[in-house]
Design a protein around this nucleic acid. Structure first.
Lengths: 208, 208
DNA sequence: CGAAAATGTGCCTGGTATGAAAAAGATCTT
DNA sequence: AAGATCTTTTTCATACCAGGCACATTTTCG
């Protein structure tokens, strides 16, 4: 699943499913839950089906009834996520330092667990019209950061076109290929990890 | 701190402080963060000072910029909480079973960590106009569930009047007293725990 | 040291989405 | 078939949020 827009990112938390799970585990109906929370059954139905994003006061009313904290609805999100794209304008770009460089927090922007063990990190140059890499797969996680140009990454079946400054995370246990589209090539920083302990931070100081 | 209203409960998460902490740790100004999130500086200022409760899409915009999940804003809430009151109408009351009884999930309603070790559980009867217990204090946590009548519990300096069906949690390391107010007595189920391991569930099946 | 710039905050108007209330249709059970 | 439960409408009030500008305070620079 690709999460790119704000709505997609919120849906990954599956707030509605969790509310419905809590309600059905107590064998309550929408009307009964509405009496406890002070919310209308119609609104509860829309929340459970993900049709609306409840406000925090509304979500807290539900959480209080079931005796859970708000973190109950926001934990284990993206567990089943396989692909995450963070565009340049959505990523944090700090002001330039005195040296004229600008730290790129693409690790942070991808919300990547910093406890994974670094396996490989290399600079990949894809010439325009060059050959597309054959599909391959391995364990761990793969992070891509586009330094310049355009790179097309195909994870599963959907090709993703990445521009300069875009960041990509995906679970490489599905076949994936790198390539280019059109007349423009691209350069990418690729980091491969193996999900384990022994964190090793890569302080990538890049220009964009 | 007593958390009773929805607004109070939300403020305990200190969402605004966490946003401000993230922003200042990156040495960003409100204008710069606004450029990244698409939020106006004025709105960011109100969010950080807790003047408004941001919507989930808005909060996710901020979270995505800093590369954190939404759980970042909802964890470790109520760490400093000492007193929590859950009124009867705010508590989950399941439909009656075939036997005519109704399970009271006051443990759940108080969001009490089920890993604490049970120390004591007793039924306390407070006659009207009876003597007020002398202040005492001990470790662990104390949970009170009013079975009938009215009971006044004083934790610290603020007396709390509890009616039938109300539930109360407080950290008993501050002096507290039990008593009654007016001409009505009360009956309470009191559970005392010692914060430790070895969970032991108390299935209190009560009528109200 | 004084001026200029940056920063945070307050106030206004308007757009948008949440949530209530109520009624009608859909689904499932008895 | 009858009934309960869930879903899908509609209208309306409320709160968030943007965008603009004004003001106070602090920092930076001339």
């Amino acid at each position: 699943m690709v999460s790119e827009t704000i709505a997609d990112g919120l849906e990954q938390y599956r707030i509605g499913s969790k509310v419905r799970g809590l309600r059905q585990s107590r064998k309550l109906g929408l009307v009964q839950l509405g009496e406890h929370t002070g919310l209308s059954p119609g609104m509860l139905s829309k929340i459970e089906r993900g049709q609306v994003f409840p406000t925090l006061p509304t979500l807290l009313r539900i959480a209080m009834v079931f005796g859970v904290g708000l973190d109950h609805f926001f934990t284990d999100a993206g567990v089943q996520r396989t692909v995450t794209v963070v565009r340049r304008q959505d990523r944090l770009r700090l002001p330039e330092t005195a040296g004229g460089t600008r730290p790129a927090y693409f690790f942070e922007s991808l919300n990547f667990p910093a406890t994974d063990r670094l396996m490989d990190a290399y600079l990949a140059v894809f010439p325009a019209g060059g050959p597309t890499s054959s599909p391959h797969r391995h364990d761990g996680a793969e992070l891509v950061f586009i330094l310049g140009g355009q790179v097309a990454v195909t994870v599963g079946d959907a090709p993703i076109l990445l521009d300069e400054g875009d960041a990509l995370y995906f679970d490489p246990d599905v076949p994936h290929t790198y390539g280019t589209i059109g007349s423009e090539g691209g350069t990418a920083l690729v980091v491969v990890t193996a999900g384990g302990a022994a964190a090793e931070t890569v302080a990538a100081t890049v220009v964009p």
